[in-house]
Amino acid sequence: MSRPLRIVLSGGGTGGHIYPALALARYIEKKRPGTQFLYIGSERGLEKNIVPKTGMAFEMVKIQGLKRSLSLENFKTLWYMIKSTAKAKKLLKEFKPDVVIGTGGYVCGPVLLAASQLHYPSIIHEQNSVAGITNKFLSRFVSRIAICFEDVAKDFGSCKDKLVYTGNPRGQEVIEQIKDSLDHQGDKKEVLIFGGSQGAEAINTAFLEAYKELAKRNYRVTLVTGKKLYDQVKVNLTEDLRDNIELLPYIDDMPEKLARCNLIVCRAGATTLTEITALGLPSILIPSPYVTGNHQEHNALSLAEKGAAVLIRESDLTGELLLKEMDSILNDPVCEKMMAQAAYDMGVRNASERILELIEGLL
């Protein structure tokens, strides 16, 4: 099949739902020139700022998540769901897609439900090792369920016959973006510490606790604080920055920075783990305890159990422990190499191709 396609994408709230969708779109554009996309997002999520910059057609529906406790807000959510499903139906009838793909977030609910009611082929993509509430709800309505962690199969119950292991489209794209930088590491080993796009106060605090000892190490350390936390870290840093320490509020080109590192200290979001396994990087993972279903800890365990990462729970995190784990990896070439190989073996580098094959099989 070589004809251009018509594809509706939906996913939002966080970059972890948006960037895999955009990576998939860019891959399909290369393989099926002339393919047209419509992205349906929410009024609240990051997608309203990110997607229009790509030039992709973008529409919005109004939706919010269910509260886990008894709340009047849930009646409002139900009303939004009814209205947004009706709007999504109208958008789909106008666009006439070959397939509708959801990559997670509340906005996928009305869009994929509308696709089911209109009998359009549909796929949901679950990036985490614990399925999101929206994807679990949609699993009975969609045609296929693409997954990145085999552990998540248990969350889809009677819909297991729809499961296809694809991995995350972001992985191969990262490799393509930085392939010229992969073998250009300097003479000193480099560690990148970051807590996601917003930063993580607990990780910043551990860095500050370890700072005096880190300044004595023979490896370079970069801490990405998060824009809102940068000034706070600067104030709490009691000494001038040493030559081997770098402090940044944010990194625009994270894949490029990752390519030059020997060790990553970070949260355990699905997109981040996709990037570091695609590159074959050892990591120290500090899962956020504030996410639905504690899915970041499950993500981190998937790597730790394979020997690709060290898991430190935030409740156990101290500067001393962080420094100990960093030293144990970077001062042991055999350990570092084994972790890197284990991470690389977990990386999925043709996820977009697999999802395109899924699409073709539905048409």
Rank of each mutant, 00 (worst) to 15 (best):
343 A>Q: 03
144 R>L: 14
53 K>E: 14
21 A>W: 09
125 H>V: 12
62 K>Y: 03
297 E>N: 06
224 V>Q: 01
196 G>Y: 11
258 L>H: 09
129 S>K: 04
167 G>S: 12
204 N>Y: 10
254 M>Q: 07
32 R>Y: 11
14 T>W: 13
10 S>V: 11
200 A>D: 01
84 S>Q: 02
54 T>F: 11
44 R>F: 12
220 R>S: 13
316 D>W: 11
345 D>S: 08
102 G>K: 04
195 G>M: 09
234 K>N: 10
95 F>T: 01
306 K>D: 09
341 Q>H: 08
201 E>K: 12
354 R>H: 02
173 E>D: 09
337 K>C: 08
84 S>D: 04
288 S>T: 14
217 R>A: 08
198 Q>W: 09
206 A>F: 06
344 Y>R: 05
114 A>Q: 00
291 V>Y: 08
119 H>C: 13
37 F>T: 00
45 G>C: 11
43 E>K: 13
46 L>G: 10
259 A>N: 07
82 I>A: 03
190 E>C: 11
284 I>W: 01
53 K>C: 04
4 P>W: 13
127 Q>C: 15
257 K>S: 13
251 I>W: 07
73 E>I: 08
182 L>R: 03
125 H>N: 08
92 L>N: 08
174 V>G: 06
110 P>K: 01
295 H>P: 15
47 E>G: 04
176 E>M: 12
12 G>D: 02
285 L>T: 03
224 V>H: 00
101 I>Q: 04
298 H>R: 10
354 R>Q: 10
336 E>D: 03
69 S>E: 12
